[in-house]
């Protein structure tokens, strides 16, 4: 991604968020439930986390149509858009509508499907009978499958697709073939629906380990470099954890903020009544 490119993430795109220069405390504020995230999607060129599965593909398509209309597409320095989603989302109607639209409007959007083979418990066979990248052909644009556990290959394919989009060559579907190592959520128990040997086979393909081995074998980094990186990550994680625990709860009255851009008499009235109600407890601890 170049600085001018726009990303439309799922709610798990923390890596892309980090690369866009957004403070990782921001999504944690959202997950902790003390605010809504807080980054400026337009300034950071990274849209809000989309909670409803697949909806961001249409936001991305509309955004791509908008920048095309504004003449920001069609040169080497043009703008491009990337939408991230998963294998489960590929079954959603709106994702397929995004494929139709981006195709017929020739929209500068890259669909990046992180196929980790499970939508909670539903395996890939429950989403598709053909490899997902092949679907793009039916919609009229190129689809490519990349080894999603190969960092450099994923980078190369994404870069090429974004460059195609920015010069006006239309959409691409990338299927990054990978595996969900952990549970879907803290309430999910994957041992109920998949076998341990499958997980073990994928452990051997760990993308972080692979890039590390590659750098070592090429002589591009040594032990002290990795030690430094590990230490930096450890310190960063401890700091982040402390910051999360210190996140303040929002003031109750802020629930009325930002419902409408220019305010609203009804909301103003509700806020007024609620403020009066709150102040009726003056002096009490609440």
């Amino acid at each position: 991604m170049r600085p001018q490119d726009m990303a439309f993430p799922t709610y798990r795109e923390h890596g892309v968020l980090y690369c866009r220069g957004i403070d990782p405390i921001m999504p944690l504020g959202l997950f902790r439930g003390v605010d809504q995230g807080g980054w400026d999607p337009i300034e950071m060129k990274f849209a809000m986390y989309t909670i409803v599965i697949g909806a961001q593909t249409l936001h991305a398509t509309g955004y791509a149509m908008g920048i095309a209309m504004d003449g920001k597409v069609g040169t080497e320095d043009g703008e491009a858009v990337i939408a991230y989603f998963g294998d489960g989302a590929s079954s959603q109607g709106d994702v397929n509508e995004a494929f139709v639209w981006s195709s017929v409007f020739h929209a500068p959007v890259v669909f990046f499907c992180q196929n980790n083979q499970y939508a909670i418990s539903e395996p890939l066979e429950r989403q598709t009978r053909v490899p997902l990248y092949q679907r793009a052909h039916g919609f009229g644009f190129p689809g490519v499958r990349v080894d999603g556990n190969d960092v450099l290959a994923s980078y190369a394919v994404t870069r090429a697709a974004l460059d195609q989009a920015r010069v006006g060559q239309g959409p691409t579907l990338i299927e990054a073939y990978t595996y969900r190592m952990g549970a879907h959520t803290t309430s999910d128990d994957p041992t109920r629906y998949r076998i341990a040997s499958e997980v073990e086979a994928w452990q051997a393909k760990d993308p972080i380990l692979r890039v590390r081995r590659f750098l070592e074998q090429q002589g591009l980094a040594d032990q002290s470099f990795f030690g430094e990186v590990d230490e930096q990550a450890r310190v960063e994680a401890v700091k982040l954890r402390e910051r999360v625990l210190e996140l303040p709860d929002p003031a109750p009255v802020t629930m009325f903020d930002h419902v409408f851009p220019n305010g609203s008499p009804e909301i103003d009235e509700e806020r007024e009544q609620f403020t009066a109600y709150l102040s009726s407890f003056a002096g009490e601890v609440h």
Binding site: A47, L58, H59, G62, Y63, G66, D94, E97
Partner: peptide
């Protein structure tokens, strides 16, 4: 869905 969803994305471009 696409009409309204894309309208939202387009609106984000100004």
């Amino acid at each position: 869905q696409a009409i309204v969803g894309a309208a939202m994305g387009a609106a984000m471009t100004g």
